[in-house]
Every structure is written in structure tokens, then in C-alpha cells.
Deep mutational scan, measured.
Amino acid sequence: NQESVVAAVLIPINTALTVGMMTTRVVSPTGAPAEDIPRLISMQVNQVVPMGTTLMPDMVKGYAP
């Protein structure tokens, strides 16, 4: 099972992602793949992402898996 990126903390809208904001988990439906964490760092979210929420590609500005 592939791990997806999950918010480790509450991420406010327009916040640039840091490694400490993200964790990985096997979830369904799958979100952004765990191996993309290095690409996701410094990208901004376009909505509030509550802690424990799977990071879906459409939540991150300019990100395409």
C-alpha cells in the first residue's frame, strides 16, 4: 500500500509547506504520494488543511503529481 502525505498540524490557507507540517499514512482515497514530500516543501496550500487531513493534489498551488 502506498503512503500518502497527511497534515501533521493545522495548516492555514496560503501557508508554505515545511517538512514538519507533513507526515505519511496509508489512507483511502490516496492523496499526494509520500515520495513527493521534497517537491511539496515551500509550496503553498490554497485552503485550510486540518490536522490529520490527507493532502490532495488540488490543495497545493502549482502541484501536479
Rank of each mutant, 00 (worst) to 15 (best):
P65D: 10
R39L: 11
S4K: 02
Q44M: 14
L17D: 06
T24G: 08
I37N: 00
T18K: 11
E3M: 13
T15F: 08
E3G: 10
L55T: 02
T54S: 05
V26Q: 12
M22C: 09
S28V: 13
N14A: 06
M59Y: 01
P12G: 09
V60W: 01
V27A: 05
S4Q: 03
M43S: 04
I13D: 10
A16E: 11
V49L: 05
P65I: 11
T30A: 15
A8L: 09
T15I: 07
R25V: 09
G52T: 03
G62Q: 06
S42N: 15
P50E: 11
Q47K: 02
V26R: 10
Q44I: 15
P29E: 04
T18N: 06
N14S: 06
V45D: 01
M22H: 07
P12C: 09
R39F: 11
Q47T: 11
V49F: 06
M21G: 08
P57Y: 10
P65R: 10
M56A: 02
N1L: 12
N46A: 07
Q2V: 14
N1Q: 14
V19P: 11
P38H: 12
A34M: 05
R25C: 10
V26C: 12
Q47E: 06
P65Q: 11
V26F: 12
V60H: 02
K61T: 15
T53Y: 11
D36G: 01
M22D: 09
A7C: 07
V48S: 14
I41E: 03
I37Y: 04
T30H: 15
A34Q: 04
A64I: 15
S4W: 08
R39Q: 10
T23I: 12
L10Q: 07
G52V: 04
S4N: 03
V6T: 03
R39A: 07
M22Q: 08
N1H: 13
M22Y: 00
M59P: 05
V5I: 14
Y63K: 01
P12F: 09
V60E: 06
A64G: 12
D36W: 08
S42K: 07
A16I: 15
S28Y: 14
M22E: 09
V5P: 01
V9C: 12
L40G: 03
T24Y: 07
I13M: 14
M43W: 00
